[in-house]
């Protein structure tokens, strides 16, 4: 193989890398970004797409070239060139990938630290999330309100304490990119389950919370509505809930109250 062929192949690899990367970077793979964490995770995916395109291009170009160039003619019973190896080349394709993956690991570590960084306490809001077959419950410890729709204010870091009642479940809002299993925990968490996860929703809208850990026959329908709203809307919703809560505890019949009647009061 001449020097010119080498250059051509390397050129082809680079071209293919660029073409693949450009095509693969166009779609919005992970969908809407609705949390502060999403941006960095998606950036990491994009970096990986470019890196992977390069690796894939090397493989495809070499494979394509060999198949095209060295295909046996019918009836050809000769042997190939007895090349047993090349120490320098082998060292290169051991060391270079090592450096690349260590770089990738370091970069992921930085991003992991970023997305898990704790915000100042005044910008945080604790929520206790409880999962059971096949239902989600959200408790706001600051007010004691309990809801099965997940209302959260925008741009505030949520500190979610996750608990499951009987089996494992998993908390995932795809637009937030954050996922964590909910584990049944004994009182006092003696086995040290890391059940706190943080996420900062930054785009108002309605989303779906999906259970992503197999939990039984109702697993595929175990979802909850997530509403990300402005602080004012959230506060209004919270006050409404608090009012409803005092009413419920005040009189037994409140359960049967029709929403229309409540407004009249």
């Amino acid at each position: 193989m001449t020097r010119a062929t080498y250059m051509k192949l390397i050129g082809l690899m680079l071209i293919l890398t660029v073409v693949q990367s450009v095509i693969m970077l166009i779609p919005d793979w992970n969908g809407t970004q609705a949390s502060a964490e999403a941006d960095e995770i998606d950036l990491l995916l994009d970096v990986m797409i470019v890196l992977s395109s390069f690796v894939f291009a090397i493989v495809i170009v070499m494979l394509g070239y060999c198949v095209y160039k060295y295909r046996a003619k019918p009836g050809d019973e000769s042997d190939g060139k007895p090349i047993h190896g090349n120490t320098r080349l082998e060292i290169a394709w051991t060391l270079i990938p090592t450096v690349i993956v260590l770089f990738a690991a370091a970069y992921s570590w930085v991003i992991l630290d970023d997305i898990e960084a704790e915000a100042a306490s005044e910008d945080q809001m604790p929520v206790n999330v409880t999962a059971q077959q096949y239902k989600w419950t959200f408790e706001y410890p600051e007010t004691g309100v309990v809801s099965d729709v997940f209302h959260v204010p925008v741009d505030k870091q949520l500190e979610l304490s996750l608990t499951a009642l009987e089996v494992l479940h998993s908390f995932w809002v795809p637009e937030w990119r954050i996922k964590r299993d909910l584990v049944p925990i004994a009182d006092g968490n003696p086995t040290d389950v890391d059940n706190v996860v943080r996420v900062t929703p930054n785009l108002e809208g309605e989303y779906t919370l999906i259970c992503t850990e197999l939990c039984g026959w109702g697993h595929s329908t175990m979802q909850a509505k997530v509403v990300v709203e402005s602080q004012e809307d959230f506060d209004a919703w919270m006050q409404e809930q608090e009012a409803e809560m005092t009413e419920t505890s005040g009189s037994e019949v409140a359960d049967e109250a029709v929403p229309g009647e409540q407004e009249d009061e």
Partner: peptide
């Protein structure tokens, strides 16, 4: 995570060696 990514190295060695085996072959 680090050990997981490192497994790509020996696996990569195998892929590259197979490709190099095809080089100058009678395929």
């Amino acid at each position: 995570m680090i050990t997981t990514l490192l497994i790509a190295v020996p696996t990569g060695i195998k892929i590259f060696s197979w490709l190099a085996t095809l080089f100058d072959s009678v395929l």
